[in-house]
Write a protein that binds this DNA or RNA. Sequence first.
DNA 1: GTGGTCTAGACCACG
DNA 2: GTGGTCTAGACCACA
Lengths: 128, 128, 128, 128
Amino acid sequence: MFELDLRSRAPIYEQLVDKIKELIINNVLKPDEQLPAVRVLAGELTINPNTIQKAYRELESREYIYSIPGKGSFVKPAVSENNTARLQTLENELSRIVLEMLYFGASPQRIITRVKTQLAKNGGGKNG
Amino acid sequence: MFELDLRSRAPIYEQLVDKIKELIINNVLKPDEQLPAVRVLAGELTINPNTIQKAYRELESREYIYSIPGKGSFVKPAVSENNTARLQTLENELSRIVLEMLYFGASPQRIITRVKTQLAKNGGGKNG
Amino acid sequence: MFELDLRSRAPIYEQLVDKIKELIINNVLKPDEQLPAVRVLAGELTINPNTIQKAYRELESREYIYSIPGKGSFVKPAVSENNTARLQTLENELSRIVLEMLYFGASPQRIITRVKTQLAKNGGGKNG
Amino acid sequence: MFELDLRSRAPIYEQLVDKIKELIINNVLKPDEQLPAVRVLAGELTINPNTIQKAYRELESREYIYSIPGKGSFVKPAVSENNTARLQTLENELSRIVLEMLYFGASPQRIITRVKTQLAKNGGGKNG
DNA sequence: GTGGTCTAGACCACG
DNA sequence: GTGGTCTAGACCACA
């Protein structure tokens, strides 16, 4: 299910967070779908259950998933409202990256093309 | 000159690196302009000179600045060549962010507009 | 494991970097082998752990080793690609040294022999 | 006469030492030829006379030049004897570099060719 | 346990 | 004056 880079500088739990976030955003994990149980995933990835736990807690606090005690963790359906703050943050990041690409010599054309390609792949339907 | 968040999880020296990188990319700090002396900046920010030095050293190894012992630290003029690897990384980040914006409800139109606005501001001249 | 010259003008951390680099290049330290822990090595050499860490950090940014926080530091397997710049630098050094050897009276024959001997020892297999 | 990189990390006096050493080894500065006076050179290079002084002192202690008080500094003729120690050092450097080139993927053939080319250019006559 | 961060304060090389 | 090096010792995050 996941591929972790145990050699990476990035903490394992953070890699997990990013991977799961990615799967959710790409709609691979559907809304309200149950995530693998902590122990199961720990077994599969042969890493410490505490690390999984930490990743899930992190995802929960960032509102990508929700947990029901005794039942498990589930993908939280995205709400297209009240995300102003988050979108603002993302827009700032976007600007920063565009600027940095220009600084390193990317042509405006190349940047626009890249964005449009990405949008063509994912922007047509509703989240995927 | 800078605003640091001493409570943040991000190390101070890394915040410094990011801020200065930003100032350089935004051409606020011009090529070959001298950066504040280690001790001076440390005094202004009331943090340890070693922390500043660590940030400067990091920026130097990432080729954003250069330091001349006994003289000071200076903004390194950008060379727009052989940045393939860096640009690749940035493009991946770009894709990720576009995807995440879509997930949080931003319309493709809004994203494109934002990018074009940014390019209009900075893509015409020479990073300025 | 190492011998340091504390009186030398060369900084301790730099001597460390050179020694370790040498051990890696000579395949004494094998790829993915763990380096001594910062505190352990500091204890053995009776120098400050920060100095060791500085050396390790330097080696990491030069891509000779990689560090996993909480795990340790390890020898990074060499990738023989895109080292054009580094090889160029080394070739210049090579020329300089050959020239200097001639100046101090070494015969061309002696120089060639020395190089060939070195290549015979290490150029046949895979750096071993 | 010289080109100094005032932005380089390398101290100016050291750059001077290297440049002059190079000129001597390449026989551009002939044996017993007088070097430019400290003040003159300082004027030409617009750097501090102390820096020139330091470079000359360094070259003298390394036996590349000799100074006659009140007269000036002169190129010291190379003696092809008693250079065993120096040649030993150079051979070690040579080995180190060859090894490092191999490590970074240079073929033995490429290394040999480079050395032979250098020898062809400079190894025919007596010092150049 | 590991490496990473930060502080306080000393000393040195350079120009 | 500048940046560079080093020490001593504290605290934190990760697994």
